[in-house]
């Protein structure tokens, strides 16, 4: 078991009180697994991703534990995490286009980065160049400034740098959303090839785009309003989802081949609740067409089938 997260809670401190952006997450990612993390904006998916590598000043660790390869990660400890970051857990940030130092040539920047971690750049360089070839970039990017590269090239460059020390876990946060379809596909396929080459052991791909996840992910975790809604292998989430939110999310996506004239799709009425004072019980209750009395109690996130966990009273069959 590569990553094991149990009951993780991370809140944001605001003047109005704590925003419960991540309110109890329990899941695991196996070795060689690419897990997709999907949900609407504000559902806490980026908070979950960030909390596994770096809590920023506004984020407050409340409870829970994170274990990576049998080592407990002290995610509440800023300096204690330093020995894990980059080496064991690495990130491709949401705005990878602007993640590189604009005043520095890319080669120099990478060298400084590695030496600050006590690694020898010269030893790593052959492998570094090999990976640059692998993602289809020219080796002379090392002597260029980030602004000389296009968005897709920068994205791939950051991917190579982030995974240079073969981390156990790679967190990829919305890395395809700012790209054009053809570049999007190339970047997504590069992610898969990184896993296949063993550069990273397992991956968490955060995106709001379910169709990208269907292409690359082994399993999908759907979040809603700070809670986990459903986790299952990709084909199960897409073909046979149990949680009503997943079902509505999947069916509200227009696909190539679906025309307004033939089949009118519908969205999900309403909007997610405020996380400042989230409602009790199931948080999807107000928008859920299946809600019933029992939903005033909070549904547990339980396994209903092999590798298929869901937080819904209807799906767990308790209403019978």
């Amino acid at each position: 078991m590569s990553l094991q997260v149990s009951d993780l809670r991370v809140y944001y401190r605001t003047l109005a009180g704590d925003v419960k952006a991540l309110d109890g997450a329990t899941f695991s990612i196996a070795d060689k697994e690419i897990m997709g993390l999907a949900g609407e904006s504000g559902c806490g998916k980026s908070t979950l991703g960030n909390s596994l590598i770096r809590l920023d000043g506004r984020m407050k660790y409340i409870a829970g534990s994170v274990t990576l390869d049998d080592n407990v990660m002290p995610i509440w400890d800023k300096t204690g995490m330093n020995q894990f970051r980059f080496r064991d857990v690495s990130v491709i940030p949401q705005y990878a286009m602007s993640a590189m130092n604009p005043t520095c040539k890319i080669g120099k920047m990478t060298e400084e980065l590695l030496e600050s971690r006590g690694e020898n750049f010269r030893e790593i360089k052959p492998e570094f160049l090999r990976r640059i070839d692998l993602v289809g970039l020219q080796r002379d990017v090392l002597t260029r400034y980030p602004m000389e590269l296009s968005g897709g090239m920068k994205q791939r460059m950051v991917m190579v740098i982030s995974t240079l020390l073969n981390p156990s876990l790679l967190i990829a946060d919305e890395i395809t959303s700012a790209l054009d379809v053809s570049t999007q596909r190339a970047v997504a396929e590069t992610l898969v090839s990184f896993r296949d080459h063993g550069f990273v052991k397992s991956m968490m791909v955060i995106t709001h785009d379910m169709s990208i996840l269907y292409q690359i992910a082994d399993s999908i975790l759907v979040m809603y309003a700070g809670k986990l809604a459903e986790k299952a292998p990709t084909s199960v989430v897409i073909e046979r989802p149990l949680h009503p939110y997943t079902r509505m999310l999947v069916s509200s996506l227009p696909e190539v081949g679906v025309r307004y004239a033939d089949k009118k799709l519908t969205g999900i009425p309403g909007s997610p609740p405020s996380l400042l004072n989230p409602p009790t019980g199931c948080r999807f209750r107000a928008r859920c067409p299946l809600a019933f009395a029992k939903c005033a109690e909070e549904p547990p996130f339980v396994e209903v089938d092999t590798d298929h966990a869901v937080a819904c009273w209807k799906a767990t069959g308790t209403d019978a």
Partner: peptide, 27 residues
């Protein structure tokens, strides 16, 4: 629209159509 997406002819259109991530089909 049906003709452009039904029989994409230009290599660029074909590249685009084949790169769209879909929900029930792999690339």
């Amino acid at each position: 629209t049906e003709k452009v997406f039904g029989h994409p002819t230009h290599p660029y259109t074909r590249l685009l159509v084949s790169s769209v991530p879909q929900l029930h089909k792999k690339w």
